[in-house]
Amino acid sequence: MAAGGDHGSPDSYRSPLASRYASPEMCFVFSDRYKFRTWRQLWLWLAEAEQTLGLPITDEQIQEMKSNLENIDFKMAAEEEKRLRHDVMAHVHTFGHCCPKAAGIIHLGATSCYVGDNTDLIILRNALDLLLPKLARVISRLADFAKERASLPTLGFTHFQPAQLTTVGKRCCLWIQDLCMDLQNLKRVRDDLRFRGVKGTTGTQASFLQLFEGDDHKVEQLDKMVTEKAGFKRAFIITGQTYTRKVDIEVLSVLASLGASVHKICTDIRLLANLKEMEEPFEKQQIGSSAMPYKRNPMRSERCCSLARHLMTLVMDPLQTASVQWFERTLDDSANRRICLAEAFLTADTILNTLQNISEGLVVYPKVIERRIRQELPFMATENIIMAMVKAGGSRQDCHEKIRVLSQQAASVVKQEGGDNDLIERIQVDAYFSPIHSQLDHLLDPSSFTGRASQQVQRFLEEEVYPLLKPYESVMKVKAELCL
């Protein structure tokens, strides 16, 4: 049975990233139509530049190519590739079939990587351009969430054990800070992308030097003109047959890092959902379990974690691919890159769409948070109580021993009897502590235990987050809708 299948058929496997999760716009960027249309555009740009620099290419040939950029006979191309065992030459023939007058000058002087690699770089750039505003929107939604809850005390956790208090907004800023680093890295790697350009079979530009009869300047002009037509500021000066596969490492490393950030955020949300302090959106008709109707599973956060793990592992592909590119190139890269580049971007696209949807509907339960604080705060307040007693004339050592005994009794009630923490009640009825009984409410005010959390939130948002989001103001209103 021949390899390949009808990918629109229910009898043929289709990647869930495309069929179930990723956005239509990201799927289109990695589609065959987008790819092969870009090949034709690159052939047109090459012909236009070659004509401008004096090669015998007519206006009629150029116009014929322009008129057929979208006229792609995919069936013919597939048949040609089956016959020739070469995808680029299959599309040269297919393009030439609908451009008979231009057929002889299509791909003039070029090698397969002229269309293959340059198209990949265009796709990487455009895919990054799709991700950047999506990530900015996630940051914006979380920034709104953090600002609104900047002063809401909550129990902090280290080692997932109760620690000092923080605020809900401050905790959210930990998430935002990681995503801001990801946004900066995505922008950097996007701006650092260079075009492969017009380089020939081993990167020496020998074929173009021959076409222009040894004119170095025209060869350099050709490279520059096509690079500018493709919208790049610069091209690699040095290439082998391909652009260095280190570029793929750079791009997928940034995406993998984004995956790590999203995994951490969504894990926190899942843990908070278990504590009943916070939940992701839950639709009115949504079913959490087929057997347990009360369940409210954090399905979206779980999906993000599941896909983020996949995204983090994909960076190993370009690392290994770059390491086995012998001399000017081997074909070890080809099949692998067809999979890992598309999957990385479709996965990143999915987790950003999902995280935006989550961040637009996060639900906080202040009463649950308050109750958990009441359970733990008495123990945390013991040092403040000791200091207040010393100020009232008591002995630190005597007070410490009193607190120690009462704390152990209260802990026994919590752990052995399943009761509430009654340390404060014990202190309130103990005559030894009568000098500070009137101060206990103040000493137990949760806001006095959150330090500068709310001020940190305000400063972080104003100095770091809002300036970073400013270039994306025009796209901030787009909502994230999930079908599944």
Rank of each mutant, 00 (worst) to 15 (best):
R296D: 07
V405W: 15
E481L: 10
V324L: 10
K147H: 13
E473T: 13
P298L: 03
F379M: 13
N421V: 12
D430M: 13
Q458N: 13
L186R: 03
L132S: 13
N118Q: 02
E64M: 08
F232D: 00
L443G: 04
L346W: 08
E417I: 05
G197K: 02
L152G: 01
N68M: 10
G231D: 09
E50D: 00
V189M: 12
Q397H: 04
V262M: 09
A431S: 15
M316E: 05
A146Y: 00
N353L: 12
L44A: 09
D248P: 02
K218G: 09
A77N: 11
A335Q: 04
D398G: 13
M476Y: 15
Q184H: 10
V92Y: 07
A127D: 00
A18G: 15
F460W: 06
R194M: 06
H400S: 02
C98M: 12
I176W: 01
F212W: 10
P133N: 11
M26H: 01
S407V: 06
F95I: 07
L258R: 00
D215S: 14
F160V: 01
T202I: 07
M299Y: 09
T347Y: 06
R404L: 09
G451E: 02
K199R: 04
F345S: 12
V465N: 03
Q241M: 01
L121I: 08
P366K: 08
S31D: 09
F145D: 14
E383M: 02
A18V: 11
H437I: 11
T58Y: 12
S31R: 03
R270G: 02
N71E: 12
F449G: 03
G5F: 11
A2R: 14
V189D: 07
E425N: 15
T94D: 06
G5L: 08
D6A: 12
L314M: 12
M299G: 06
R372S: 05
F195I: 09
W43D: 01
T201F: 00
F282V: 15
K170Y: 02
D73E: 09
L128Y: 07
D445Y: 09
L130A: 08
E283D: 14
W43S: 01
K229W: 04
K276V: 02
L55P: 04
L468W: 09
Q375N: 05
Y34I: 01
Q177W: 08
P298N: 06
G288A: 08
M225W: 00
S151E: 10
P153K: 00
A150D: 06
H400K: 06
Y466E: 14
R338E: 03
T330K: 05
R337P: 04
P467G: 09
M476S: 15
R137W: 05
T244R: 07
R33K: 12
R374A: 07
R234P: 09
E481G: 15
E473W: 11
D430C: 13
Q416F: 14
I62C: 09
T450I: 12
L482R: 01
H93M: 11
E277I: 00
C304T: 11
W45T: 05
M380Q: 08
L362R: 05
E464R: 03
R300S: 06
P281S: 15
S306N: 02
L272P: 07
Q285G: 13
S474Y: 13
N71S: 11
S448P: 10
A3W: 10
A388I: 06
H7E: 13
I373M: 08
R426I: 06
N118T: 00
R396A: 06
T227G: 11
V219M: 13
I238V: 13
G214V: 05
D144W: 12
K276F: 09
A342F: 08
P162W: 12
T202M: 07
Y243S: 15
D441T: 08
L484N: 15
D268K: 00
L484V: 08
P56V: 12
V478R: 15
L142I: 08
H7P: 11
R37W: 09
T244A: 12
R309W: 05
D32M: 14
G393K: 04
F212P: 01
F95K: 05
G259S: 09
D117Y: 00
P293D: 01
G214P: 04
D178H: 03
D11R: 09
E228D: 10
G451N: 00
T166Y: 02
T204W: 00
K35R: 14
Q456G: 05
N353A: 13
E425K: 13
P471E: 14
I62E: 04
A2T: 14
A260R: 03
G394F: 10
W45S: 10
I62R: 04
V315D: 03
A78S: 13
D349A: 11
S253N: 13
L252R: 03
F449R: 05
S151Y: 09
V29P: 02
K470T: 12
N297D: 01
A344G: 14
S253T: 14
R171E: 05
F345Y: 07
E425A: 11
R14Y: 15
R337S: 01
W43F: 07
E277F: 01
A335S: 15
R309F: 06
N336W: 02
L484S: 15
A163E: 01
A381R: 04
R270L: 06
L84V: 03
L469T: 14
L440G: 04
Q51A: 10
R426A: 08
F160L: 04
K224E: 15
Y34K: 06
E81P: 02
R196Q: 13
L108W: 14
R372V: 01
Y466I: 14
R149N: 11
S15K: 08
N274Q: 08
A3L: 10
F28E: 09
P298W: 03
E280G: 03
V219P: 02
V189N: 11
R296V: 12
E81S: 00
L461T: 02
F208Q: 02
A110S: 14
E79R: 15
Q221G: 07
S253M: 14
H400C: 04
P153S: 05
I238P: 01
R270V: 02
E417C: 09
F449W: 07
E473Y: 12
E48A: 05
V262C: 14
E376W: 10
T382W: 06
